[in-house]
Nucleic acid binder design. Structure first.
Lengths: 335, 335
DNA sequence: TTTTTTTGCGAAAACGTTTGCGAGCCGATG
DNA sequence: CATCGGCTCGCAAACGTTTTCGCAAAAAAA
C-alpha cells in the first residue's frame, strides 16, 4: 500500500516507531514475539521502507551507477547484463547513463553522482583530454571500477582484456596466411583500447618486418564518415588486402562498403575485427572476430566494485584484472 | 567536494540555510545580489544537493525505472537508448532491471519501486498468469507505461507496433511467392506480442484458404530447447518450406539449425522474422526481417510517462500508441 | 505623517528512517 | 535486601533538504 510508514505500523501495534524499525531489521534487542507481530502487520500492508529516508539516514543508497558510451553495442549490453546480475544478487539497484561518446556529457553525468546518489561507479570512459570528474570521484570517496575503456592516469581497479595480445595474434595470422597490406581501422584515438589494439597490430607487422606497410585509418564516431574513409582507402592506388577493425562497427561498415563497391570478402579483402556479435558466424562470409568475455567483464567489475563498497581489501589480482578474449577464425579471413 | 551541504554554505555566507536553498533554486523572494553570492560559493565548492534529502522532502525521486526481460537483444537495447535520451533531457535518472523472462523476479523488482524509489515505470512484461504487482503500482499511484509487451487487463498507456499487420503482410507475401507450409515459431505464448503476431500469421493463411496447413511451434526460452524443436520439425515427414519467427532469437536459431542440417536458405527453407538486428542484411543469405522502430518506441513511451508524471492530460492518441514497423524483404525469402 | 504593500530573509517544521541512550522490568547474584 | 546485569522497549536526535510562516525593513500608497 502506498501510505504505509513506520509511524502507521507503530500506532496500530501500540509500539514505538523505533521498535518497529528494529523489529523489521531483525535487531537482537527485540523479542521474538514482537518481531513476529510487527512482521505480520508489515506483510499485510506490503510495507517497504522509504528508500530516500533510509539512504539519507544511513548515507548509502544501495545503488550503483553504470556509465557507458552507448548501449546499442553487444559488448556493452552483455557487460550490463553481467553487472545487473551481480547487483541484483547483492540487493543493489543499477542506474544507467549513456554518454554517446560525448565527454562533456560524461562529465556532467558523473558530477551528478557525487553527492550520494550512488555508492559506486562502473565506467567505460569516452575519449577526453583529461578526466577531472573522475578525480573528483576519488576525492568524494566514490569508489570507481573501470572496465574495458580505462584511463591509466587514474588509480582505480580496472577490468580489461588481453586485447593487445589478440590484436597481435590476429594480425600475425593474417600475415602468415598471405596478407601483405593490413589496414588497421580505429576510432579516433587516444582511448586505451585503441592504443592497445594498435600496439598489437604494429607488433605483428614489426615482427614480420613490415612495419613500413602499416596503414592506420582513424574513423570518427560519426556514422557516415567512417564509410567515406573506408571507400577512399579501398579505392586508392594501393588497396589493402585486409582490414583489422578495432571495434565492431568498423567491421560491419567494411562489409557494407565492400558490398557497395562489389569487392569480395575474402578474395579481394580479408576482414577481421573485435566484435561481440553473436551472429558473426551467420555473415556472408562468416566474420572472423576477436570476442571479449563481455558478460564476465561485467560480473567481475561489479564484484570488485562491491568489495570496494563494502570496504574489503582487494585481492592481489583485482587492481588490474585481465580476462582472456578469444579469436574466432572464420571465412572472412580465408586466403 | 564531498562534505558540502547547505549548512556549510550558509555559515560561510552569513545566511540562513533556507535562504541558500532558495537562492540556488532561483526563488523570486531572494535578491539578485545574494543569489549571485550564493551561487558563486556553491560553484566554487561544486555543491550538489543531496538527492536523498531532496527526494524525501519533495516526495519525488526524479528517477524512472525500466523493467525489461533482457538486454542482450537489439530491440530492448535500442528502446533503452531512446528512453535514456528523453530521461536525460528531462534531468531524470534511469534505473534498469532485468527479469530474464522470470515472472517471479519481475514481481519482486516491481515491488521495490513502490515506495518512491521511482516516479514512473516503463515496462515490457514477461509472461505470467496474472500481474498483481502491476495492479499494486496503480494503487500506489506509480505511473506505468507499457511498451512492446503489454498486458491488456491493466489500464495504462501502451506503445506498441502494428505487429499483427506486418505478420500478416509478411506471411501473405510468403504465400504469394509460392510457400505452402509456413511454420510459425513463437515463444511460450500468452504474451501479447506472440498472440498478435500469430493472429497475423493465421489471418494470412485463412485468407488463402490454407488455415489447415498452419504449423505453430512453441519454443521455450531455454537456449537449446528451441533448436531441438526446430530440428525435429525440419527433419519431420512434412517439412515446412518456410518459417516465420516471432522473435529474433528464433530466426537466428533457424539459420544455425539449417547450417547444421545442411539445408539451404531459401531454396530448402524460406526464413523471415521479427528482428532489430542491424546486420541482418549481411547474413548469408540476407535475412528478411520485420523491424520495429525500437528507438522511437522508447522515446515515445518515455515521453508519455513524463506527461503522466507531470500530471498532464494525455493527448488523444497516447493511451494506445501504435507505431509502424516495416518489412525488409531480402534473399532469405526469395523463391 | 500613517497605513498598506512589497521585498528579502530567518526560524522551524516537516519528510521517513535509523540509532544512541536511557528507563523499566525481570531474574540472578552477592 | 540491595545490586547488578540482561532483555525489551521508548524518546529523541539525527540525516540534508524544502517549504510554510512570520517578521522586519523598505517602498508605495494613502
Amino acid at each position: 500500500m502506498a501510505g504505509t510508514d513506520l509511524k502507521k505500523l507503530a500506532r496500530e501495534l501500540n509500539l514505538a516507531v523505533s521498535t518497529v524499525s528494529r523489529a523489521l531489521r531483525d535487531s537482537h534487542e527485540i523479542s521474538a514475539a514482537t518481531k513476529a507481530r510487527v512482521k505480520a502487520l508489515a506483510d499485510k500492508y506490503g510495507f517497504r521502507p522509504n528508500p530516500h529516508a533510509s539512504s539519507l539516514r544511513q548515507a548509502k543508497s544501495r545503488t550503483i551507477a553504470v556509465v557507458v558510451p552507448e548501449i546499442r553495442n553487444n559488448f556493452f549490453s552483455q557487460a550490463i547484463n553481467g553487472i545487473e546480475l551481480v547487483a541484483q544478487e547483492k540487493g543493489y539497484h543499477v542506474l544507467i547513463y549513456l554518454t554517446h561518446e560525448n565527454s562533456k556529457q560524461e562529465r556532467e553525468v558523473v558530477q551528478l553522482l557525487q553527492n550520494g546518489r550512488a555508492d559506486g561507479l562502473l565506467i567505460s570512459v569516452t575519449e577526453a583530454e583529461s578526466y577531472p570528474h573522475l578525480e573528483a570521484c576519488r576525492e568524494a570517496e566514490l569508489p570507481i571500477v573501470f572496465f574495458d575503456r580505462v584511463v591509466d592516469e587514474i588509480d582505480a581497479p580496472r577490468v580489461i582484456t588481453d586485447e593487445k595480445l589478440l590484436a597481435y595474434q590476429t594480425c600475425r595470422r593474417l600475415l602468415e596466411s598471405g596478407c601483405e597490406r593490413i589496414a588497421f581501422l580505429t576510432m579516433a584515438g587516444n582511448l586505451s583500447i585503441s592504443r592497445h589494439r594498435q600496439d598489437g597490430y604494429l607488433q605483428a607487422l614489426k615482427e614480420k618486418g613490415k612495419e613500413h606497410l602499416s596503414i592506420i585509418v582513424e574513423c570518427s564516431a560519426a556514422d557516415d564518415h567512417s564509410r567515406e574513409q573506408l571507400k577512399k582507402i579501398l579505392s586508392g592506388p594501393q588497396r589493402p588486402d585486409a582490414v583489422f577493425a578495432a571495434v565492431e562497427k568498423l567491421a560491419v561498415d567494411t562489409y557494407e562498403v565492400c558490398a557497395e563497391m562489389e569487392l569480395n570478402i575474402p578474395e579481394d579483402l580479408c576482414v577481421a575485427g573485435f566484435s561481440n556479435l553473436t551472429v558473426a558466424s551467420l555473415f556472408n562470409p562468416p566474420l572472423t572476430t576477436v570476442v571479449q568475455p563481455a558478460y564476465e567483464i561485467g560480473k567481475e567489475a561489479a564484484g570488485i566494485l562491491f568489495r570496494l563498497i563494502e570496504g574489503k581489501k582487494l585481492l592481489p589480482g583485482e587492481q588490474k584484472r585481465v580476462l582472456p578474449s578469444h579469436l574466432e577464425w572464420r571465412r572472412s579471413t580465408a586466403r
